[in-house]
Amino acid sequence: MRLRKSVAALFAAAVAPVLIATAGPAGATEDADTRTSPAVEAETQASDADRIETMIVGGRDATQDYPFIATLVRPDGSLGCSGSLVDENWVVTAAHCVYGGRADGSNLRVGSINGHEGGTVVDFTEIVIHPDYDDSEVTRIDMDIALLRLESPVPDAQPITLQARRPTDDQYGLLLGWGQQCAEPGGCGQADILQELDVLIDNRLGCESGFNSETELCHVAAAGTGPCYGDSGGPVLAERSGFTYLAGLTARMGYPGENGGSPWCGEGVTIATDVSAHYGWIQSHISA
Rank of each mutant, 00 (worst) to 15 (best):
L148C: 00
Y133P: 05
Q163D: 14
P167V: 11
R149K: 15
V154E: 05
G187R: 03
G177Y: 01
Q190T: 15
I113M: 10
T168Q: 15
D134Y: 01
G177Q: 07
C182N: 12
G179F: 07
T139I: 04
D135L: 00
Q163N: 11
R109K: 11
A157M: 06
G173H: 02
T161M: 15
L176D: 02
D134K: 06
E137G: 12
E126L: 10
G118L: 06
L176R: 05
T168N: 14
L175H: 12
L108V: 12
I141W: 00
G179V: 09
I129F: 03
T139L: 05
E137N: 14
D134R: 07
I145A: 01
E184M: 14
Q190N: 14
P185A: 06
I141L: 02
Y99K: 10
T125W: 00
H116C: 08
P185Y: 07
L162K: 06
P185G: 05
A157N: 07
D156L: 07
L162C: 06
G105T: 07
E184Q: 15
E126Q: 13
D104P: 02
G187D: 09
T161N: 12
A157G: 03
S106Y: 09
E184A: 15
V121H: 05
G101W: 05
A146W: 03
P155F: 08
S106R: 04
I141A: 01
D135M: 02
T139P: 00
V128T: 08
I145H: 01
D134E: 10
Q190A: 13
G173K: 05
N107E: 09
A146C: 05
A103M: 05
G100A: 13
V121I: 13
V110A: 01
A103F: 04
G179Q: 10
G105W: 05
L174F: 04
F124L: 04
T120N: 10
T168H: 10
I113A: 11
T125D: 12
D192Y: 05
I127L: 11
I127H: 04
P131D: 03
P167Q: 04
L175D: 10
I129W: 03
S112R: 05
G115N: 04
S112M: 10
I160C: 01
E117W: 07
G179A: 09
V128N: 00
T168C: 10
P167K: 03
A183L: 11
Q181M: 15
P167S: 08
G189A: 14
E117T: 15
D192C: 04
G179M: 09
G186T: 10
V154D: 01
V110K: 02
R140W: 03
M143Y: 15
R102M: 12
G105M: 04
T120V: 14
A191P: 01
V121K: 11
T161V: 14
D104V: 11
L150G: 01
L176A: 02
Y172N: 13
C188V: 11
D142V: 00
Y99P: 00
V128Y: 00
S106Q: 11
Q190W: 02
E137P: 00
Q180H: 09
G115Y: 04
N107Q: 07
M143W: 12
L174N: 03
G115P: 00
H130K: 06
V154Y: 08
M143P: 01
H130Y: 06
H130Q: 04
D192S: 13
